[in-house]
Computed example of a mutant assay.
Amino acid sequence: MKSFNLILLVVCSFVYSQEELKDKLPYYEVPEYAEEFTAGTMAARMVDALGFRYYWASKDLNEKDLAYRLNEKGRSTAETINHIYELSIIIVNSTLQKPNSRGDKVEMTYKEKRTATLNNLKKASDILHVSNDISQFKIIFGEQKIPFWNQINGPIADAIWHCGQIAVYRRVTKNPINPKVNHFTGKIRN
């Protein structure tokens, strides 16, 4: 019987680790920093910091968390997740030099939005990281082309702000983020 339990434990551990690998998302930790400071590596690092904060603020939210809102006028956590997703589209579209379109709503679950948001941020960071000239990246709405500077004080800063909002909401709903998250180092403490 002991050998059967041991075999079962090994098989379950293998299946769990395979499942974990399959669902691996970017920003469990902040990627290693670049060797040199450039406009591209600095912008990429800002997006990476956002990705890390979003990863942990949005990890393992339950229905109670998603439904929480401070008051009737404010967004719920689920609506805030949606807003951050929309901001991630603006961020990645800028690096892809692709126009933004308003009103293209796609129905997704919380987990699908979370995955898409993290992947959008990773894609944007990867592009920025190797770019020598980030002035080429504009936020495009129709004929309007807005400089990359607005990306920093606009969508990136706004999304970071909302990650903090989700973290606070989680405390209220008694589901705080992992206490081992170290925002200063971008790593998880042992």
Score class of each variant (00 low, 15 high):
residue 2 K to W: 09
residue 9 L to K: 12
residue 12 C to E: 11
residue 13 S to A: 13
residue 16 Y to K: 06
residue 19 E to Q: 05
residue 20 E to P: 00
residue 21 L to P: 04
residue 21 L to V: 15
residue 22 K to R: 06
residue 23 D to S: 13
residue 26 P to E: 01
residue 31 P to Y: 08
residue 34 A to K: 02
residue 36 E to A: 14
residue 36 E to Y: 08
residue 36 E to L: 05
residue 38 T to C: 10
residue 39 A to M: 13
residue 42 M to S: 12
residue 43 A to Q: 11
residue 43 A to P: 02
residue 48 D to N: 05
residue 48 D to I: 08
residue 49 A to R: 11
residue 49 A to W: 02
residue 49 A to Y: 09
residue 50 L to I: 08
residue 50 L to C: 10
residue 52 F to W: 04
residue 55 Y to L: 01
residue 58 S to L: 03
residue 58 S to A: 14
residue 61 L to E: 04
residue 68 Y to N: 05
residue 68 Y to G: 03
residue 68 Y to L: 06
residue 72 E to P: 02
residue 74 G to Y: 13
residue 84 I to A: 01
residue 92 V to F: 05
residue 92 V to Q: 09
residue 94 S to A: 14
residue 94 S to N: 08
residue 95 T to N: 10
residue 97 Q to L: 05
residue 107 E to W: 07
residue 109 T to V: 00
residue 109 T to W: 00
residue 112 E to K: 00
residue 115 T to R: 06
residue 115 T to N: 07
residue 119 N to L: 13
residue 122 K to F: 12
residue 123 K to G: 07
residue 139 I to M: 14
residue 140 I to W: 02
residue 143 E to V: 08
residue 147 P to H: 01
residue 152 I to R: 05
residue 153 N to L: 14
residue 153 N to W: 09
residue 153 N to C: 09
residue 156 I to Y: 01
residue 159 A to K: 00
residue 161 W to Q: 12
residue 169 Y to M: 10
residue 170 R to N: 02
residue 183 H to S: 11
residue 185 T to G: 03
residue 187 K to E: 07
residue 188 I to K: 05
residue 189 R to N: 12
residue 190 N to K: 13
